[in-house]
Every structure is written in structure tokens, then in C-alpha cells.
Amino acid sequence: MAKRPPITNRVRELREAHDQMSQSALAKAIGVTRQTVIAIERGKYSPSLESAFRIARVFGVGLEDVFGWEGD
């Protein structure tokens, strides 16, 4: 089994806080597939820095409001 990256995120929480934005809508907004958004939300995949910034910009928050380091 692939090792989980030690990065936490609040993507699902932020998405739901934004009028229940769908995974597909977020995927389209940041230029990835819905499966990639699902993988990010489940902590199975750490997005590239560019996609991380895109996600933060979609929600109008800073990068550290979306992503964190496990244990911090």
C-alpha cells in the first residue's frame, strides 16, 4: 500500500463551507480530475504546489488555511 503523505488538509471542509461545492466543480476550477480531488481529500495524494495554491485561491484563503503538516 502506498505510504500516506504526512500532509493534512481541510479541502472537504472548505468545499462544503462554500455552498456545498461539488468535487467535480472544484476539480474543474483547479484543472484536475474529480478522482484527484477525492484522493487529496482522503489524504492519499499531496497536490503539487501549483494545485495547492489554486485550491487556496478558489476558497479565498491562504495556503496554510488549507494544508498543514501532520502533528502540527
Partner: peptide, 11 residues
Amino acid sequence: EAANAPADERE
């Protein structure tokens, strides 16, 4: 639509 889209970073 998915068929025409390029692979994303994870893919």
C-alpha cells in the same frame, strides 16, 4: 470530455 482532457498531475 474526459477522453479529450489531458492527464492531470496525479495521473
